[in-house]
C-alpha cells in the first residue's frame, strides 16, 4: 500500500538555523496523525513542506507515491489533492463565501459554474454554514471563517487534509465548532495530518501522535501511549507544561 504522505530524511534550514533535522514519517491513506511539540519545534514547517509551501533543504517528500520534491513534478496538480487549512484562515477577503469556495474548482478544475456552486453548497452544509454563502469573510466570526476555509479546501475534493494549528487564533468558545467539523471529517475517513495544541482532540481522534522537538521526531505512537505514558523525558516535560498549567 502506497502511503498518502511519506517524508524521507526531510531537512529544512533557514540560513544557519536548522529547523528540521532529518524527519522520517509515513501517513497511510485514511490515517489521522496529530503532530505536537513546543513552539519552534518545526511542526508547522514540516507540514508546509508536505505541499511545498516551504521548500525543503534536503530529503524527499512523496504524496501518494509521487515525489513532490522532484523539480520536474506537476506541483499544482499534486496540490489539488492536498487540502490545507491555515492558522489565520487566509480566506480571500474580496470574494464572498461562495466565491471563496468556487474560485479554485472553476479556475483549476475548469468546473462549470453551476456544478461548482452545487459542490460548494454541499460543503457549506457539511460545516454548518449554509446560510452564509453570500457573506464576505470580514462579516464572519473567526470560527465561521475557519469552517469556511475547511469547506474551501474540501471543494477541491482532496485525498488528504493538512491542518496547521487551525484553532490557535480562535477565541476559546469558537474552538469547539471547528474541532467538531474536523472530527466529522475524521469519522468519514479523510486522511489527516494535524499540527495542534489541542491534546483532547489528539487523544480522541488521532490514530497516531508524533512528538516533535528541535526539528526531530522524539517519539511517536498511539495517543494513549504518547500522551498517557510517554517514554521520553522531553515528551514528559512538554506534556507536563501543557497539561498542568
Amino acid at each position: 500500500m502506497i502511503p498518502a504522505i511519506e517524508l524521507r530524511g526531510l531537512r529544512k534550514a533557514f540560513g544557519d538555523h536548522l529547523v528540521l533535522d532529518g524527519i522520517d514519517l509515513q501517513v497511510a491513506a485514511g490515517e489521522k496523525v496529530c503532530v505536537i511539540g513546543p513552539s519552534g519545534s518545526g511542526k508547522s514547517t514540516m507540514l508546509r513542506c508536505v505541499n511545498r509551501l516551504e521548500e525543503p533543504s534536503g530529503g524527499q517528500v512523496f504524496v501518494e507515491g509521487t515525489e513532490i520534491t522532484d523539480p520536474e513534478c506537476d506541483l499544482d496538480d499534486i496540490r489539488t489533492r492536498i487540502g490545507m487549512v491555515f492558522q489565520h484562515f487566509n480566506l480571500f477577503p474580496h470574494l464572498t463565501v461562495m466565491g471563496n469556495l468556487t474560485v479554485a474548482p472553476r479556475r483549476v478544475r475548469r468546473m462549470a459554474k453551476n456544478e461548482a456552486v452545487v459542490t460548494a453548497r454541499q460543503m457549506l452544509a457539511r460545516v454548518g454554514l449554509s446560510e452564509k454563502e453570500d457573506a464576505y469573510p470580514a462579516q464572519l466570526s473567526g470560527g465561521q471563517q475557519q469552517r469556511v476555509a475547511i469547506a474551501r479546501a474540501l471543494c477541491m475534493d482532496p485525498d488528504m487534509m493538512l491542518f496547521d494549528e487551525v484553532t490557535s487564533a480562535l477565541d476559546p468558545e469558537l474552538v469547539g465548532d471547528v474541532l467538531k467539523v474536523m472530527r466529522d471529517l475524521a469519522d468519514e475517513g479523510m486522511t489527516m495530518l494535524v499540527v495542534t495544541h489541542e491534546m483532547g482532540f489528539a487523544r480522541e481522534v488521532a490514530d497516531r501522535v508524533v512528538f516533535l522537538d528541535d526539528g526531530q521526531i522524539v517519539e511517536e505512537g498511539p495517543p494513549a501511549q504518547v500522551l498517557g505514558a510517554p517514554t521520553h523525558e522531553r515528551t514528559r516535560r512538554f506534556l507536563d507544561r501543557v497539561l498542568h498549567h
Binding site: 499544482d76 496540490r79 492536498i82 490545507m84 491555515f86 480571500f92 479554485a104 483549476v108
Partner: peptide, 19 residues
Amino acid sequence: GQTEAARSLGMSPARTMIA
C-alpha cells in the same frame, strides 16, 4: 497568506496573481 492559500488549492502563480 493569500498567495499561500491560492497556491495550496493548486492555482498556478499566474492565476493566483490575476484572481
